[in-house]
Every structure is written in structure tokens, then in C-alpha cells.
Design a protein around this nucleic acid. Structure first.
Length: 322
DNA sequence: CAAGTATAATGTACGGATCC
DNA sequence: GGATCCGTACATTATACTTG
């Protein structure tokens, strides 16, 4: 499917904003092109894709592509893209806390320009579900497989860009979920897709709720627990009040903050407040999402920045050809 | 035949969700 | 709160095969 260019737009960003970091972290190579350039999908069915590039220290340029330009609302699309890339998000309070934190003090310096790149609630839930009961490598392989086996490819100028399946496409091709290596998670993915298809899940409605209420709604879905719900809320709506604490984060917080494991979540919220989930995500970047044992050793050694080596990690996931 | 190498089989870590 | 479940990756061990 070939997309046509519908509009060009410019986004304002703070001086120290880094589109390069924002696009690079936790991304596949078919979306991150290097040097602060890349693709962001805004809609899946029918597809709307943005090509973005950093033009100057405070300017991002964007080109919006779609099948037909008739239904494109320029204001709407620009807002959506800006929300995904986060230039309007003021992280000064988060960075201030981070600069005095035993785990993220180095991260605060080096990743000052980074913003969490959000995605749709649908895809954020898929990401969350694929992180359950598994390590980093396996989880992201599942996501790559889902994109390749169940998604579609669109042409943007001279490049073919793979897109994730929409809820309807996932339902249609659900027999390919097992071959994609998601195992028992296919049931949960199917269930989530069904809710979207029936329009029972409305991102705008969740956005207007408080984080705890939104978590409750998502936990109604069988197979979605608090970890997945909270991660999805952070990754799609920038709701950070409630941190997605897994055993990994629990152990590391418990060690670094010198509290009992049962107190790890409470301590995280006490220290990070409305930035709790962002802190957890930043921690996975800082420690390369390494398995717990190795991550703890790194904390002890004070190695609190991602490895430049070609290891499979949030920082250089984009180098990986799945 | 003994030592080394390739392949197969087995074991275990991983970790959130759910049941009780 | 503890036990159990799940699928894959990686590590370890066992077996088969090759080489000198």
C-alpha cells in the first residue's frame, strides 16, 4: 500500500530536546533511521504515518502520510504527533529528582533531552502483554514477529515501513499469533483486540480518569494485571503516577533504596511521585533491561548508563535485525 | 582407540497473572 | 501470600560423530 504526502508541519521543542534519543530508545530499526530521523505511526486502520526529523535545536519537522488526505485534520494530527514525541512535556521536576537519585543520577545527565515516545493504547497494551513472564529479548522478538506476521507494510516515499496490526487485523489473523511465539498470551491479545473492535476501550475516556481508575478498567481484561495496565497507561497516555513494578524493579529498588521488597513500590512512589512509572522505564534503559542478577551487579559497580556495545537492550534495540 | 568436536537432550532462569 | 502456570532463551550435560 502506497501512502501519499498530505501535509508538512513544524513542531516546537525545548532547546535541549533530543528527537534522536526519543526515536532511538525502545525502537525497531524500521522506525528509527538515525540522526534524529524516523517514522511514527499515528493510526493503523487506515494508516497514517509521520516522518519526523530534527531541523534545529528547537525545531522538528514532520511530514504526514496517509492513503487519502481527505480525512486528515491538520490540527488534530499535529497534536497527536506532538503528544507522541513529548516536546511539550516538562521533565524538569523528574530530572531534578533523578539527578539526586542513586540509580538515575547518571541517566539524568546523559538523557536530559530524552522524552518517552508514546504510542496508541492498543499497541501499548500489546507491548505490555508481550513483556509478561519473559525477558527483554523474548518480549521484543514477539513484538517484531507480530508486526511481521500479522501487520502490513506501507510505502512512504521510497521506503517500505512495517506497521503493527490493528485490532481488527489481529482478530482476522489470530491463528498467526502462536507462530509468532507469543504462547498463551494470544488469548489476552485476542481479548484486548476484541474490546477495541467493539469500541469498549476508549483511550480518551481513560485519559480523563485518574490513573488508579484507568488501571481498574484495564484490569477488567483477563490476562491484564497491574503491571501490564500501568505500563500501558504510561506508554500511551503519559500517566506515570502508578509504577509498573515487576520482580526486577522490586528487587532493584529494594536494594538501592534500602527498603524491604514489600515496601519497594511505596518507596518508589514516595520518591518519584507523579513520575514513578517514568522512573521505572528510565531504569530499564539505564540498566539495559539486563536479567536481575546482572542488573544488580551493575548497580553495585555503579554502571548506571546503557552499554554502547551491540547488546540487545532498550538503547540499541534498533540495531537488531530480528 | 583416545581426544576433540558437533549435535541432541535436558535443565533452569525468567516473571506477571491467577487461583486459592 | 504462596503455589502454579506458561513459552522461550540460554546453559549445562549427554550422546554421537569425526579426526589423528
Amino acid at each position: 500500500m502506497k501512502l501519499t504526502k498530505c501535509l508538512e508541519t513544524v513542531l516546537r521543542a525545548p532547546k535541549d530536546y533530543s528527537l534522536d534519543l526519543t526515536l532511538r530508545i525502545y525502537n525497531f530499526h524500521w522506525y528509527y533511521l538515525g540522526n534524529g530521523r524516523g517514522y511514527v505511526f499515528l493510526e493503523l486502520d487506515p494508516p497514517i504515518v509521520a516522518f519526523v526529523a530534527q531541523k534545529g535545536p528547537a525545531t522538528l519537522s514532520a511530514r504526514i502520510y496517509s492513503v487519502t488526505c481527505r480525512d486528515i485534520d491538520a490540527n488534530n494530527v499535529s497534536q497527536q504527533l506532538s503528544f507522541h514525541l513529548g516536546p511539550e512535556e516538562d521533565l524538569s521536576e523528574f530530572l531534578d529528582l533523578a539527578s539526586r537519585d542513586p540509580l538515575l543520577k547518571l541517566f539524568a545527565k546523559k538523557f536530559r533531552g530524552w522524552r518517552l515516545r508514546t504510542t496508541s493504547l492498543w499497541w501499548a497494551l500489546v507491548i505490555g502483554i508481550c513483556q509478561q513472564n519473559t525477558g527483554f529479548r523474548q518480549g521484543w522478538r514477539m513484538l517484531a514477529n507480530i508486526i511481521k506476521l500479522l501487520g502490513k507494510r506501507v510505502w512512504v516515499e521510497d521506503r517500505e515501513v512495517p506497521l503493527p496490526p490493528s485490532p481488527l487485523e489481529l482478530i482476522e489473523k489470530h491463528t498467526l499469533l502462536k507462530p509468532a511465539g507469543v504462547g498463551y498470551r494470544w488469548r489476552t491479545l485476542f481479548e484486548v483486540a476484541t474490546r477495541f473492535a467493539r469500541r469498549e476501550l476508549k483511550p480518551s475516556r481513560l485519559y480523563s480518569m485518574d490513573t488508579a481508575g484507568a488501571e481498574k478498567v484495564l484490569r477488567n481484561i483477563r490476562g491484564v494485571g497491574s503491571y501490564t495496565a500501568r505500563l500501558a497507561l504510561a506508554l500511551s497516555l503519559r500517566k506515570y503516577e502508578l509504577p509498573p513494578i515487576d520482580r526486577w524493579a522490586k528487587k532493584i529498588f529494594s536494594y538501592a533504596y534500602q527498603v524491604d521488597e514489600n515496601e519497594a513500590e511505596r518507596e518508589c512512589i514516595r520518591r518519584w511521585g507523579r513520575w514513578s512509572a517514568l522512573a521505572v522505564i528510565a531504569l530499564t534503559i539505564a540498566l539495559d533491561a539486563e536479567p536481575l542478577k546482572r542488573a544488580l551487579e551493575r548497580v553495585k559497580r555503579g554502571e548506571l548508563l546503557p552499554n554502547e556495545r551491540n547488546t540487545l537492550s532498550p538503547y540499541n534495540l534498533w540495531m537488531w535485525k530480528f
